[in-house]
């Protein structure tokens, strides 16, 4: 599992109206491990992440230029089948957003869209994915109750299970722990470390310490530009760019 080859970004620029928020990004994300997109708030991290599965198009007045290759195909090409593309990626948002249905239906929602499933098959899938995110034991007695009743931390794990149920290759996380209490955040971080064997994980964060805990690779973005990309070890111990050094030493707020 995981992406079959590195994800290549070529000259990617994004503007909202006439405000250019990403400026000609070039980046190659390895198909294995966790790649952290790091940078202060407002630098364009979420914008970049939303390009991967093209939900950036839900924003108004947005213009995306450049190329973004996933499994060798340019997903920004107008002919790209968005359904196939989005099935390849699970997205975790900052604030866990459950769907207006039961816990069970939340997990099965995406999977049922892509495949006709018998009840038994769906039951098995739901259990499997909920176990992956350590939620099964907490909810197995109340699968039919509204997902909205869960705690925020549980909701985020449910969202992860929901994403995993469509059998993606890539997991996208947009500061997925920042709305959570420390304990739930830790649980989610652990899941990411477990999942990285089988999935390509791209994680946006503005928390330096989280990046240090999780990253195998780091892409540092500042004011819409890709400043530096390197393996985590190299990035933290031996930063090349002046801006990276200042960010790492806490001189850039964020």
């Amino acid at each position: 599992m995981g992406a079959k080859q590195p994800i290549k970004i070529e000259n990617l620029s994004v503007s909202y109206g006439n405000q250019k928020v990403l400026k000609s990004i070039n980046l190659e994300i390895p198909e294995k491990g966790i790649t952290v997109i790091l940078g202060p708030s407002g630098c364009g991290k979420s914008t970049l992440l939303k390009c991967f599965n093209r939900i950036i198009e839900l924003e108004e007045n947005v213009e995306v230029e450049g190329k973004l290759f996933v499994d060798g195909e340019d997903v920004l090409h107008p002919k790209t089948d968005l359904i196939v593309l989005r099935k390849k990626m699970g997205l975790l948002l900052q604030k866990p957003q459950v769907l207006p249905m039961s816990i069970y239906d939340n997990v099965a929602f995406g999977a049922k869209i892509h495949k006709n499933m018998k009840k038994k098959e769906a039951d098995e899938l739901v259990e499997k994915e909920l176990r992956k995110v350590n939620l099964w034991d907490e909810v197995k007695e109340r699968l039919k109750s509204p997902a909205d009743k869960l705690s925020i931390g549980q909701q985020q794990r449910l969202c992860l299970a929901r994403g995993l149920a469509v059998e993606p290759e890539i997991i996208l996380g947009d500061e997925p722990t920042s709305a959570l209490d420390p304990l739930s955040a830790e649980v989610i971080e652990k899941q990411f470390l477990n999942l990285k064997e089988n999935y390509t994980i791209i994680l946006v964060t503005h928390m330096l310490r989280q990046a240090k805990r999780l990253a195998d690779f780091v892409a540092f973005i500042y004011l819409g530009e890709l400043v530096e990309f390197n393996s985590a070890a190299e990035f933290f111990s031996n930063p090349k760019d002046e801006r990276t050094k200042r960010y790492l030493s806490g001189l850039i707020a964020g």
Binding site: L93, Q97, F109
Partner: peptide, 10 residues
Amino acid sequence: EMKQAAYSLG
């Protein structure tokens, strides 16, 4: 975000 979540599932 609810629409974003649903669209991202395909």
